[in-house]
Design a protein around this nucleic acid. Structure first.
Length: 683
DNA sequence: TGGGTCACGGTTTTT
DNA sequence: CCGTGACCCA
């Protein structure tokens, strides 16, 4: 049976699956059967008698976890086995904390906050700095294991002192309200393992075989955590593609994959370079593009299919012409019997979807915009979530403040501020202040009218808490009855949609409790906190999404728009041209049969029309002949200007990597000439 | 308290 | 251009 599983794999894949003990790095190029290899390895390990409970597989997304899990289970057939743990990093962290957070003297009824909540908390602490900036900075600290104290003492510039200060207050706030953010789901387990060697040893012993998907996207903290999990063995198998690392801006440490072999002894390295997805033509251009990157482990995708159609390059005056071309193409594809589900339009910047959407609407074509505002991020849903959080965790001041006036009950900012102050003074949550104070005491804080309102409000919340203990379903019915939550949206703009969302959400909760009758409300909350809607691909239209969102997906027909300097590659302060190129590589390799790239001469963006140059990626990938501008370019050799004129008149028809340099093939007057890039300089 | 108006700023975002 | 947030007045 174990050998049977390996039947449909190629040689390298089999080698990867059969390697049992010791560290392994699987470099899996785009479309090289990465998921198949991991899932087969899980099934194989179990089939040769390894205890499923000792296998841990970590992914980044729920979607990947679900897919791998079901594939691994189906490979094992119907044999009833104890399922191996296969989940996201964050889910693993959550499970770990539920068991062990007491080691940090914290209770395990903590609530997970999302990035929106985080920003709100930061804003409440300090309004001068932009909360997104501070939020990202705090994440960077946490993921680099820098404590507030260290951040404070290391800060030299005033801004960083300020940020470190906010960081400290933020951490205290989380602690007081028993909240954890996404970073904590990894950081706190690491801290616990760091402080408790026996536990680390025990856990490492429990998970003898650890696998990590998308390793190129791991950060410093994840690496450290993995080290702890492996402190008792070296059976860590990581799978990734350095060429598909596109989350550097978010703290992913590409060095984790680049240096894996040095960090773990006797690492076996396996490259999966056979691509089963795209045509040879598509791969050729993808390879040409990525060849321009310096920091690579080095890998070339080999095609297994056919040459296929050549990649089309569209040139348009502006975004309207671009959209017209795409729509006419897509219409003709559909008339030839292509399903719109097999078509996707990709862009580097979400803002580019606007003109597309307009065009599609006018043409009456259905589309499916991936990304955008997520269901759980809608304000009405977040309000409901805040209600449920307060109901399960009375210490959650943050959520309490969110719902205190929703629906409107006449409690304003001034009253909230007073309660906040009181909460700090009494070192007690707002919930408990309202509960513990006598009506007279509370009136002293917020006035008689507000005191009465708050007492009534809290009584309703407490009634619901009681009902929740008896019946979750009855609780849900009474919740709406008590607060008239939907009522507030009647007759306001978008109110109809909001009510529909609320009903959908109630439906979700009911479903969850039907599926998990024994689960508590806080389990539901933890579940949705870690759930994002990638499964947004519900309707049958053409998909539109950012390149980031397209990672891991494939479509028969791919259109990439906005191939212009400034848009793609996107140029900004933190921009990294190699990462942009990897994004290009990811985008190209999403295509199965046909790839079309498009650029325009001008685009309407941020309220103005901007002139644009076509993307360098078009020449780098060999999609168009590059032409060097006569005035701006000259060729030098050893400091001397050479053949300026001839070179200037030539056209670059090929670019190839030679060592650390690029070899440009120039065509002038019919004859070809090769020149190294170091000989080319801008004047 | 909350609705209205104006100024500002604006990549990508698995959890 | 278009959404968010600060600020002002009823």
């Amino acid at each position: 049976m174990s050998e049977n599983i390996l039947k449909t794999l190629n040689e390298s894949q089999v080698e990867a699956v059969r390697h049992i003990d010791g560290a392994m790095l699987i470099l899996a190029g785009a479309g090289s059967g990465k998921t198949k290899t991991i899932t087969t390895r899980v099934a194989y390990l179990i089939s040769i008698g390894i205890d499923p409970a000792s296998i841990l597989t970590l992914t980044f997304t729920n979607k990947a976890a679900r897919e791998m899990y079901s594939r691994a289970v189906s490979l094992l057939g119907n044999k009833a086995i104890y399922p191996p743990l296969l989940c996201t990093f964050h889910k693993f962290g959550l499970l770990f904390l539920k068991f062990h957070i007491s080691l940090l003297n914290r209770k395990n009824n903590f609530v997970i906050i999302d990035s929106d909540d985080k920003k709100k908390i930061i804003k409440n602490i300090e309004k001068e700095l932009t909360s997104s900036m501070v939020s990202a900075e705090i994440s960077r600290y946490k993921n680099s294991l820098i404590t507030p104290e260290v951040a404070k003492s290391a800060a030299e510039q005033k801004v960083y002192k300020q940020i470190a200060d906010i960081y400290e207050k933020y951490e205290n706030y989380l602690l007081e309200n028993n909240l954890v953010d996404f970073d904590d789901l990894l950081l706190l387990p690491y801290k616990i393992l760091e402080q408790n060697h026996d536990l680390a040893y025990k856990i490492s012993n429990k998970y003898q075989y650890i696998m990590v998907d998308e390793y190129q996207d791991t950060n410093e903290l994840q690496y450290k955590l993995l080290q702890k999990l492996c402190c008792n063995h070296q059976n860590l198998c990581v799978v990734g593609d350095d060429d598909q690392s596109i989350y550097g801006w978010r703290g992913a440490a590409i060095k984790n994959i680049l240096c894996f072999s040095e960090q773990f002894e006797n690492t076996k390295v396996i490259k999966l370079e056979e691509n089963y997805r795209s045509t040879d033509t598509i791969l050729k251009h993808a390879n040409l593009l990525i060849e321009h990157n310096r920091d690579r482990l080095g890998k070339t995708l080999k095609g297994t299919r056919c040459e296929g159609k050549s990649v089309r390059v569209y040139e348009s005056m502006d975004e309207n012409e671009e959209t017209r071309k795409l729509i006419s193409d897509i219409k003709s594809l559909i008339s030839q019997g292509v399903s719109p589900k097999d078509i996707a339009i990709l862009f580097r910047v979400n803002a580019l979807s606007r003109s597309l959407e307009e065009g599609f609407n006018k043409a009456g074509l259905g589309y499916n915009l991936v990304g955008g505002i997520k269901f759980y991020e809608r304000s009405e849903i977040k309000d409901l979530i805040a209600y449920f959080r307060v109901i399960t965790n009375a210490n959650d001041n943050f959520s309490f403040k969110r719902i205190i006036n929703k629906p409107k009950r006449g409690i304003g900012k001034t009253t909230i501020d007073k309660l906040d102050l009181e909460s700090i003074e009494q070192k007690k949550s707002i919930y408990n202040i309202i509960n513990d104070s006598t009506p007279a005491e509370l009136s002293g804080i917020v006035g008689q009218k507000n005191a009465r309102t708050l007492k009534v409000f809290l009584a309703s919340v407490m009634d619901l808490q009681d009902i929740l203990k008896d019946s979750k379903m009855r609780f849900l019915d009474l919740f709406e009855e008590t607060f008239d939550f939907k009522e507030q949206y009647h007759g306001i703009p978008d109110g109809y949609d909001k009510i529909a969302n609320i009903d959908e959400f109630y439906g979700y909760i009911r479903d969850f409790f039907i599926q998990n009758p024994d689960a508590k409300l806080d389990e539901f909350l933890a579940n949705i906190a870690l759930e994002s809607e990638q499964d947004n691909l519900d309707n049958d239209g053409v998909s539109m999404m950012s390149i980031h969102a397209s990672k891991g997906l494939e479509y028969k027909h791919i259109f990439i728009i906005g191939m212009e300097e400034g848009f793609f590659p996107l140029i900004g302060d933190g921009s990294d041209i190699e990462e942009e190129r990897r994004l290009g590589y990811v985008a190209f390799t999403r295509a199965i049969d046909e790839l079309t790239v498009s650029y325009v001469h001008s685009r309407f963006y941020k309220g103005r029309r901007t002139d644009l140059q076509k993307s360098r990626f078009l020449t780098e990938s060999g999609l168009i002949e590059g032409s060097l501008n006569i005035e701006k370019t000259a060729a030098y050799k050893n400091g001397d200007l050479i053949k300026h004129k001839i070179f200037g008149m030539g056209r670059v028809i090929g670019v190839q990597r030679v060592g650390k340099e690029l070899k440009l093939t120039i065509n002038f007057g019919g004859s070809k000439k090769d020149i190294l890039s170091s000989f080319v300089e801008k004047i």
